[in-house]
Amino acid sequence: MKNSNANKALFNRDPILKVTGLNKVFGRSKGFFGKSTSLVQAVTDVDFEVYPGETLAIVGESGCGKSTTARLILRLIEPDSGNIIVDGMDISKNDALELKHLRKSVQMVFQDSYASLNPRLTIGQAVMFGPRTLGLSIVKAREIARETLSNVGLDPTRFEGLFPHQISGGQRQRGNIARSLAFRPKIVVMDEPLSALDKSIEAQVVNLLCDLRDQYNLTYVFISHDLNVVQYIADRVLVMYLGKVVEIGDVGSLFSNPRHPYTRALMASVPSRDPKIRTQSAPIMGDLPSPINPPSGCRFRTRCPYAEDICGAEVPLLTPQKSAGGNQVACHMEKIGSGHSKGGILDE
């Protein structure tokens, strides 16, 4: 496991990214007069923290809100409510100064390597765009672009003048990474950066990301549905379901001791390379409910084998941060006296 060099006593440091109460609802009004409005509850009451130098992975199935969360942090989409504090500054308000701080500190790598690059710009030009926007001269920008390109494994003399359609998918993704690193950001958010790559290339890129993390002292927010990669690269993992956070914890304890029923099912579905461990079928019933009308209370209750009345009546809150090794879980079974028959029973 190639985790970061970050100090294990993470909790003593201030978070470099702190998200509280993040909410986003997408409205879809049908009908000429907009009578029936279908609202998609994409992200609801999401809180989490990311510490300097660590890699936080956000996992969950498609449609759980991970990509939306990423875009909200970068303010590509405006949050309905919530605070986003980057390196001490609250960037969720609309001040130009704060936005500028955001742009310098946080950058993003997208999933689709082809659509993320302007087909009309060379790789060199694409990577230079960042430093130029930050106000650097063409000469300085080119210097930074070249340095960054070679750090991601693309020889600048060769790749600078090439267009996106002239290079392979893996090379394009490296180009994307270079493009975001050219800003010299502190945090890089990656939205499924490996999903479109061949497995062999994927391994190269993952290792590249780990090297870059150490080299540039980066903090990663790594969104993925591939749990194997997450296990390899992440320090902590955040599990999302239908727009809500269900569990956050160390990668080690999350994988070995998942507490939320959803996390358990997820972990059980990871194919293991050890032939002695047979993959168990995931104990989840039914299909993903529609995010337009999510189940009341705990959103997972319709597929949870332990669901009881309390689960429909009350929204389970994320348990507060424990000492190192403990996970935060949003489940009624976590707390004694929550009303759930198994309340506290998992607290062994």
Binding site: R71, L74, L76, L99, K100, L102, R103, K104, V106, Q107, M108, F110, Q111, D112, A115, S116, L117, N118, A126, F129, G130, T133, L134, N176, R179, S180, F183
Partner: peptide, 17 residues
């Protein structure tokens, strides 16, 4: 709708640029 416009937006460049 393509990602490279998103990428340009998060660079902080002005709309005009």
């Amino acid at each position: 709708g393509l990602e490279y416009i998103d990428a340009a937006r998060i660079s902080g460049a002005s709309d005009f640029t």
